[in-house]
Structures are given as structure tokens and as C-alpha cells.
Amino acid sequence: MSWNIFPDRMVHLLEQTLTWRSRRQEIIAGNIANLDTPRYTRKELNFNKLLTAHLQGVPTVRLAATHAGHLPGKPAGTLGAVEHTRNSVDLDQEMVQMAENQLGYQASVQMLNKKIDQIRTVLEGDKS
């Protein structure tokens, strides 16, 4: 019997969001660390684009598995979502993006907690 504890794909989406957010944080950290590196151009993880692509369920290309022993391989994840802008690093811009990213991360964690709380309430029933 397939019993899905999370009827909607919410938890999965939140989990994905957290992964992207931390990836984005990493890229912002790289940009800021290279503030003074000559000829370094800033990189950007377009979060909105990733989210839209995820929600619309972008078709992914898979290799045909003609044998039971064929392994599917690792999903692409954030591959190709990082854009190389040709601009130099602007500290203010990076700081704003980082703050936004951090808030988004905290919001996702909070949402995830609420979701888990809901499930816990259901599991524990009316205890009072």
C-alpha cells in the first residue's frame, strides 16, 4: 500500500527551496569573497526561474534504462541555473540579495515547521 504522509507536494517543494536558497547563499558568498579580484564577473542563481521551472514540471531528459541494473544517475539539480552576468560585483546589490535570500530561507523553514506541526497534530489526535 502506498501511503503518502504528505498528500500535497508542499514538503518536497519546501525542501527543494531550501536547497536552492543555500546554493544561492553560496554563490553570493563567492561573489563577495571575490570583490577585489580583477576580471571577476558576478554570478547569479535566478531563484524565480528555478521555482517556475519546478512548478511547471520542466521535462527532463533521461537515458533509456534497458536493463534492471541500469542506475538512473544523479538528477541535475541546480545545474545550468547559475547565470554568468558580465557585470562586476556590486557590494550593496549582493548584500540586499543576501538579506532577501536569508529571509526566504527562514520563511521556508517556518513553513516546513508549520507543515510538520499539522501532521503531528493529526498523529497525536486530541490529547486535551
Binding site: 558568498a29 563577495i32 557590494l91 548584500m95 538579506a99 515547521n113
Partner: peptide
């Protein structure tokens, strides 16, 4: 310039740490 860049890196560090701590709160 160097000291400002240093500050900026400290801020990023703080933000990263805050995110990691927040992630530890999942399911609590």
C-alpha cells in the same frame, strides 16, 4: 576598502550561520 570588504565577508558569514541554525530548527 579592504576593511569594508572584510566587514562584508563577516556579514555573509553571519547570514550563512543564521541559515544553518534555522535549518536545525526544522521539525522542532
Amino acid at each position: 576598502l579592504a576593511s569594508r570588504a572584510f566587514d562584508a565577508n563577516v556579514s555573509v558569514f553571519r547570514a550563512g550561520r543564521a541559515m544553518a541554525l534555522k535549518a536545525l530548527e526544522i521539525g522542532r
